[in-house]
Amino acid sequence: MDVKDIINPENFVYGKSKVLTDTVMHYCPGCSHGVVHKLLAEVIEEMDIQDKTIGVSPVGCAVFAYKYIDIDWQQAAHGRAPALATATKRLYPDKYVVAYQGDGDLASIGTAEIIHACNRGENIVVIFINNAIYGMTGGQMAPTTLIDMKTATTPYGRSVELNGHPLKITELIAQLEGTCFVTRQAVHTPAGARRTKRAIRKAFENSAQKKGTSLIEVVSTCNSNWKMSPVQANEWMVENMFPFYPLGDLKDR
């Protein structure tokens, strides 16, 4: 059978979600943000909640998320996405509210906001992209940077004496009473991306059932600032990030 015969609307199996806009994403080639945006858009499309979802975009690379996913958005001050999401959810209790944050935003400047929002058990969904570096500002050390990992501000590698230990914020959050679903996923393979999508869907369902805060950490790459190709960065992530940030559900109730 010829390729031209296969390419036919009736044989369509997978394509771009209708919830994504046609704007070309500004992310670097191979960035995990693009995959997570797509999965979020697919979940919103499948649950048919496009007009009921409000996103909160962070400061960081994902600051322009509002350009790419066609839902209502707010843009929070640095680290304050969970606070803004709390206010939004309390004002519009029947809407789905999703805060989308990076590791510099959530685990550093916004630590207080995320801990307290999760401890209060706000019925919001938090997507946490952990690439162990500050991506937008040029690859400085983040709280989640691994020991001995080279960044712009730790050119000889992160040391415990000078910079302290990497912060496992997801483990901290999993201990809080207000959270109902805390998981760590990755989107470097098709299976991982599909698992992440199921986790995002579950988080939205928890939000509808008023079970508490759901947090999905996505261990991601920053190939530009890691100074690798996208494929090498994925391999580096598997070798170095996964032993310290193991994948799986930390809490599910």
């Binding site: 059978m1 015969d5 296969i6 390419i7 036919n8 044989n11 369509f12 199996v13 997978y14 394509g15 771009k16 979600s17 994504l20 070309v24 994403m25 992310y27 080639p29 191979g30 960035c31 995990s32 943000h33 693009g34 995959v35 797509k38 989107v187 470097h188 393979t189 098709p190 991306a193 599909r194």
Partner: peptide, 13 residues
């Protein structure tokens, strides 16, 4: 599924 920029459309028979 893994394409970050959603540029691939798949058809199957």
């Amino acid at each position: 599924v893994v394409c970050p920029d959603s540029v691939i459309t798949v058809y199957r028979v």
